[in-house]
């Protein structure tokens, strides 16, 4: 598996899109810091950008990578290697590339501005972790979509819709339901709604640590109030781990049964 992972990483890391993605984050991070000259403000702006952008890039990269590797995948599947190790290696190489882009694009400039010796170091580490986690989750979802749909156009369209749903539509639906059923106790529903959206989970985890309650939103406020900050963070962390493990299990199931 390690060889598949190694060469999958080589393939992805040399892609021009990986350079463009890293370059974009580098430019944005430098620009935000130079404009505000304040690490906290830069981090808040960056968290807004990364929470929307990392899932989008993760899901698009994942889908495109799977489709472009389809013929090569067939060759590898004809070799004496288990399907599970093959998929894990290919997926791992791609996910690591996305994380490296984030760490270089956002991490390096902020470290050069001295974030590690500032009071915002915890928030910085949390932001990096959440951006990488969202990349891992959404690129995994992308693999599942691409494996399910042999048609590239259909696969890419569904991937974009899934991102649109979790990043934009989901909050709208949740608010609509909260408004329609406002006469009923909705705390448990709200917590459930948060857990089933990884972007919301990451957003709340970051805002809980920002102590900027205005940015927390209704769902974040319910999470803080009813679970407390400590238990709330544990619940969110476990949910994010499940958001990684469950798709990974599905990938294994689908990969074993799939015809290539």
């Amino acid at each position: 598996m390690k060889y598949i992972l190694k060469y999958s990483f080589y393939e992805m890391v040399r892609s021009k899109w990986a350079y463009i993605y890293t370059g974009f984050y580098l430019c944005v991070t430098f620009a935000l810091y130079l404009l505000s000259n304040d690490l906290d403000k830069t981090l808040i702006s960056l968290s807004n950008i990364t929470l929307a952008l990392t899932p989008l890039i993760g899901i698009l990269f994942g889908t495109s990578y799977y489709y472009s590797s389809k013929e090569f995948l067939q060759l590898l599947l004809s070799q004496p290697i288990s399907r599970w190790h093959l998929f894990l290696g290919m997926y791992g190489g791609m996910a690591i590339t996305l994380c490296v882009s984030i760490l270089i694009g956002i991490g390096l400039p902020l470290i050069s501005f001295g974030i590690l010796s500032s009071a915002s170091v915890n928030l910085f580490l949390l932001l990096m972790t959440m951006a990488c986690t969202l990349s891992v989750i959404f690129s995994l979802i992308a693999f599942l979509i691409a494996m399910q749909f042999d048609d590239k156009v259909k696969g890419l369209s569904i991937s974009i819709f899934i991102w649109l749903f979790f990043a934009i539509l989901y909050d709208g639906f949740t608010l609509l339901l909260l408004f329609l059923f406002k006469d009923y106790p909705l705390d448990k529903f709200t917590i459930g709604a948060v857990i089933t959206n990884p972007i919301d989970l990451a957003r709340i985890l970051i805002t809980m640590n920002l102590d900027v309650s205005a940015m927390m939103g209704y769902t974040g406020a319910v999470m803080s109030k009813f679970l407390g900050k400590g238990i709330g963070m544990v619940v969110i962390t476990i949910s994010l781990i499940l958001w990684t493990l469950i798709p990974l299990g599905l990938l294994k199931q689908m990969g074993i049964k799939k015809d290539f």
Binding site: Y7, E11, R14, S68, E71, F72, Q74, S78, R83
Partner: peptide, 29 residues
């Protein structure tokens, strides 16, 4: 999958990862 150690397969479409070199592919195999 271990039985495939004894089979060499040439697929119909020679489509390889674009950013890898021939040497790297041979090394992988």
């Amino acid at each position: 999958f271990k039985y495939r150690t004894e089979i060499g397969y040439l697929p119909q479409i020679a489509q390889f990862p674009e950013n890898l070199t021939g040497n790297e592919l041979i090394d992988l195999m």
